[in-house]
Amino acid sequence: MKILVCISNVPDTTTKVKFKEGDSLFDDSGVQWIINPWDELALTRAMELKEDAGNSVNEICVIHVGGASADATLRKALAIGADKAVRIDACPADAYHVAGQIAEYLKENPFDIIFSGIESSDYNGSSVGAMIAEFMDYPGISSVTSVNLDDDDIQVNRAIPGGKQVLKTETPFVAVVQKGIAMEPRIPSMRGIMMARKKPLEVKPAAELEVLTESIKFELPQEKGACKMIDSESAEQLVDLLKNEAKVL
């Protein structure tokens, strides 16, 4: 059984975002790039499944659509334990374009399970996984909080408002994962980092695909006014302000 993990290369979550060229582009100067947090958890879960002798997972590949600047992030994924990395050499224009590129790769290189994070922490499109499933005509499961294999029989938990569902699916399928899929992301070991240098990182040319949306410009949220401080003894005053000033009760 083979698992493909889709990887987005995003600014570190502590980044203070800035824009340049008339607020039309993200200013990436001084930005630290990381594996999108949910993708990193998905990769960790894929590793756990491979290490469990009870099932037949024998290959984990990570895939990314983007330029050479993401190679360091892909090497990190290899150091965490992926067997192979693939980078589709394209400027990632929007979710449709990225999902289309990954689907083109999948048509030539089939996988049994495709993991995709619930969203990328930069553009928050939250669409790539479900689009891949549609391009490939595969079943897809969203809001996935766990994937278990029992003799290659697949059991998936999905979060629903105020609860969960336990689901069964056939393969191939796409799992769009969120927090809970793995407890903590793995940190690459020294040995992992050494081994990653020898693992394959294939660069594939991009397919000709349409782009349906275009980012025009960015803006920062309005600054908040000053915080009104209330004495810790005056709980009634806060209740009054919330009712009569903020009018949120």
């Binding site: 975002v17 922490s121 928050n124 949306t213 275009e214 025009i216 410009k217 803006e219 920062l220």
Partner: peptide, 15 residues
């Protein structure tokens, strides 16, 4: 739309 998980907004054209 919301981008950078709420740290900013993006204006996006649908073509």
């Amino acid at each position: 739309k919301r981008v950078f998980s709420g740290k900013a907004f993006g204006h996006v054209q649908i073509k």
